[in-house]
């Protein structure tokens, strides 16, 4: 249970980063932290105490193993996260080139 609570705290840390930080890179880091908390949560769903990894072996029939489906989901989510973050960082670099700063308060061409 405490692990779920820690996950939630991590989620909130990420959300704090997104909402309160003014630096583009720090906002992206906040989003990354948030993503990892969700991934931890997914792993925890499939976790069973004192179980083995879901690899088929000789003692497979008796062994209690953790749910492999959330792990597959997490791998897919990591791939998606990679694509999102690569795109986000390249946009951040472009924005730095345009404005000469990473501060979002200086970027205000869009209003209304």
């Amino acid at each position: 249970m405490i692990l779920f609570f820690l996950c939630f705290i991590l989620f909130m840390v990420g959300l704090y980063g997104i909402i309160m930080q003014r630096n583009l890179i720090k906002i992206i880091i906040g989003l990354a932290i948030m993503e990892y908390s969700v991934l931890f949560f997914l792993i925890l769903i499939g976790y069973i105490d004192s179980a083995t990894a879901p690899i088929i072996s000789e003692s497979f029939e008796e062994a209690l193993f953790v749910d492999p489906l959330p792990q597959a989901m997490v791998l897919t989510a990591i791939v998606i996260g990679l694509a999102t973050k690569a795109l986000m960082l390249s946009v951040a670099i472009r924005l730095y080139k345009e404005y000469g700063t990473f501060d979002i308060r200086k970027m205000n061409t869009l209003k209304g």
Binding site: L82, A86, L89, S90, I93, K97
Partner: peptide, 16 residues
């Protein structure tokens, strides 16, 4: 794909 992401960011930095 990952190498080309890296190379693309590097090219961007070098052009700067």
């Amino acid at each position: 794909a990952i190498s080309s992401i890296f190379v693309a960011l590097l090219i961007f930095k070098d052009k700067e």
